[in-house]
Amino acid sequence: MTARPRVAVLDYGIGNLRSAQKALERVGADAVLTQDATVVSAADAVVLPGVGAFGACMDALRDVQLETVTHDAVASGVPFLGICVGMQMLFDGSEEDPDARGLGIIPGQVKWIPSSVQRPQMQWNQLNIRRDEPMFSDLGEHPWMYFVHSLHGVPTDSDCVTATVQYGDTLNVAFRKGNVFATQFHPEKSATAGLGLLHNFVASVKS
């Protein structure tokens, strides 16, 4: 019998983390909410969730000493997934809080989406997949995912954008850089399609 991959969901006191944990469990992972560096370094994969404001999330992450732990997890090469503001924090910084420093794992900036459309985008939207990625396997050509955001990532290297959506403009909503995956949308809230993506993420753990 194959052991269930252990996924550490970084817990730094922000909103709803339990959904991410339960969704990962649903797709076969042994998921724990943790801020314990030992637990994170022993994990087979790591998830960085996030909701709210960029600066507040960065402060909260630093307050519980998870910044270094995050960098170590990324450097260790295990599959790593940032979700929503957890995705945004992987960038160098954000127009939302220009004074706050991001993790700098994906070079680039997080920028406001156009004000010509309602902000936040709070709805389901259909991905345009730019690159054939294991993360998107079996999801169909244009899977529907749930979004709540007012900003999106603009990486220095546009090759790391793996999916976009149309909302006022073409927005970058999924990224990959090595072992780091990141989604602006909430796979844990995107019904079957989202669970499919999380399944692919958990399956990427090397047995």
Binding site: R18, K22, A23, V148, H186
Partner: peptide
């Protein structure tokens, strides 16, 4: 709410 979060994967 807690039991819903275990089974329901929409917002």
């Amino acid at each position: 709410v807690s039991r819903t979060a275990e089974q329901v994967f929409i917002p």
